[in-house]
Design a protein around this nucleic acid. Structure first.
Lengths: 351, 351
DNA sequence: GCTATTAATTGGAACGTTCCAATTAAGTCA
DNA sequence: TGACTTAATTGGAACGTTCCAATTAATAGC
């Protein structure tokens, strides 16, 4: 019956050794004779043995799986796909496998996937929280001692490590740059206004408006879904205001791409008729036309960093929660209309 | 010690019942008195009990986890993110959780993540294979009886269910449409030429070129990475040929977006100066400017269908491998230059 | 050949949970 | 009150693997 699970008992019988010897081979123990090891290994291959991690974890002292959970709030945003790719680069070489789950901004779904991951004994969790996630939502996993790293969106009050970008500095630098290009009516487009990331990025925008002596205008702050479609929507509304902005700092790159789409739909050329600055520096920012001026978070680097932080905690057994604010960089490309700007010139804004 | 695992023994002691009663409560058995059930449930909540799925699977007859593995070859392509979202819609309501892993086209990584998923006892697998995957690579999991559904890329000879789009019909219809708009020099851009999907889509392209009495030109078949950046590259090379194509059917939407980018970079306007047809109909196809004419696969619908097919097999215990060729539709929008085309008119090309 | 040491292998119990037969408790009826 | 039936709970063994002390095998030295 090919569907019956092959166990160490089956391997032991077929190889003419004890189950304990099979276990030693599985553990790569030096206590096994090479000939015996080769025989057992061959039998495992022949019989198609598949390790039962759940059984092993039961007996193994301090056992943990080689799985790291990664939970993101919106997988259709390329930023999170790239974040996951960055995580994979680091965890792979540490012998871990990433299991990625998407919550589509649902708190219920988030709880469900985290619970399922815990049932299976994940060694750690990287979480980009769904909207409205509070410290209370994270309390059970925190109490369990499983290392958690929160990325992108902070969860105030949660005793977990966090890695977020320097949102305020980023939008501050974006506005400053647009002002240096001569813009005076600058919009802030996109983002769900009930998230900490939105507040931070808006705060930096406002601070720069004030620091540059410009008149703040609430009509130029237009929230929308943080997606490409949301960007089309937001720029349409911005252009319908009496103020007539000539430039915008966008909540993220997806919104910025949508803003460029929305401008073209109105016969305007992004970069020439309207200056666009994004936030993230996803892969497509460089290849888009016009190439996107953006605040570079570099999602893959962020993923790598989050993974390193998590592995550090796993290896330390238990560590103090660390809060890291990842520096960001203004990357000047064509979309802001800096036609004589050298795209390779990068203005450092962080540490 | 808050990090010690809470077990059914601990719950039993704290609730003043036996471990068997705790187990019955966990199983939702009707054999337990309501008062006892409430007491045990309360103690579980207080002590933060987390089920040990690995232990349960050990004893439980025919036990399988509530996890479905989903393995994709390129998560940075929005198509796969949407596929995963579609899978989630279906598996969620069936009480399953999707664990998604990305192989970045690596066969080694693919084997590793599949092995890890099997260790943890997945109930089924949806796989978009990495390049060069053969039936031999799938033989072990097939032999184990775990239900597998291969999507997007077929693996000839593998005795698994598959769900692929009607690639030949799709590109055939795309070329026909461009011919009906008056184009005679039509390129085929993008895709890795060592994949079955590429062969199918190219075959449809060639068949339509022949059926419309056009002169085939190998110089107009330009493979590239199936990404946006690959599209920029491919259209650059197409425009550098002596033939000077006026239109292209693209391997997928990501390539098509890149082709539009590449046209703009050369001062050409997609839809007006050059007709572009994509393949997939990802979310962004509709909102892009120009809105993308494309062969609609609808990745979310595909994900839903794959999940339904997999759940059907799981619930049937064992089923015959099914091969489904999902019909595709030509969706005419602006990128092909059909300026008087009504975007809501959809030309049905499938069953 | 005998003794001591090292190498290799083994048997039994543990891990958390489930299952099932056995036991106990509760309710009903005469 | 006792007998019978139903409801509720329980104890022990099983599941696949690991760990560790015990046992066996092999080797070296005299």
């Amino acid at each position: 019956m090919k569907n019956e699970r092959v166990t160490v008992i089956d391997i032991a019988k077929a190889a003419g050794v004890s189950k304990s010897t099979v276990s030693l081979v599985l553990q790569g123990s030096p206590l096994v004779n090479d000939g015996t090891r080769a025989k057992v290994t061959a039998v495992m291959r022949e019989l198609g043995y598949v390790y039962n991690r759940g059984a092993a974890n039961l007996r193994q002292s301090g056992a943990k799986s080689k799985i790291l959970g990664v939970v993101v709030n919106d997988l259709t945003n390329g930023f999170f796909a790239e974040l996951a790719v960055g995580v994979d680069m680091v965890v792979q070489s540490a012998g871990f496998v990433q299991f990625l789950s998407n919550t589509s901004e649902s708190l219920d779904r988030q709880s469900e996937v985290i619970a399922s991951m815990r049932e299976h004994g994940i060694s750690g969790l990287i979480l980009s929280p769904a909207r409205a996630t509070t410290a209370a939502d994270l309390k059970p996993i925190v109490a369990s001692g499983i290392p958690v790293v929160v990325v992108v969106r902070n969860v105030p009050g949660a005793r977990v490590s966090s890695l977020v970008s320097d949102n305020q500095q980023g939008t501050f630098a974006g506005v400053q740059h647009l002002v240096s290009l001569g813009h005076r009516q600058i919009a802030f487009l996109g983002g769900f206004n009930d998230t900490a990331v939105f507040e931070d990025r808006l705060h930096g925008y406002r601070a720069a408006i004030a620091a540059c002596g410009l008149e703040p205008a609430d009509a130029l702050i237009i929230p929308s879904a943080p997606s490409r479609a949301g960007g089309v929507d937001a720029v349409g509304r911005a252009l319908a205001t009496d103020i007539k902005p000539t430039a915008a700092v966008c909540f993220n790159d997806a919104v910025a791409f949508g803003v460029c789409d929305g401008l073209r739909a109105k016969g305007l050329e992004p970069g020439k008729d309207f200056a666009v600055v994004g936030f993230d520096d996803v892969i497509e920012a460089k290849t888009a036309v016009p190439a996107l001026t953006t605040i570079s978070v570099d999602p893959q680097a962020m993923g790598r960093r989050a993974a390193q932080l998590l592995l550090k905690q796993i290896n330390a057994g238990k560590a103090e929660a660390e809060s890291i604010i990842s520096s960001v960089r203004l990357v000047v490309r064509s979309s802001c209309g800096a036609t004589d700007a050298d795209p390779s010139v990068k203005v450092e804004t962080g540490l």
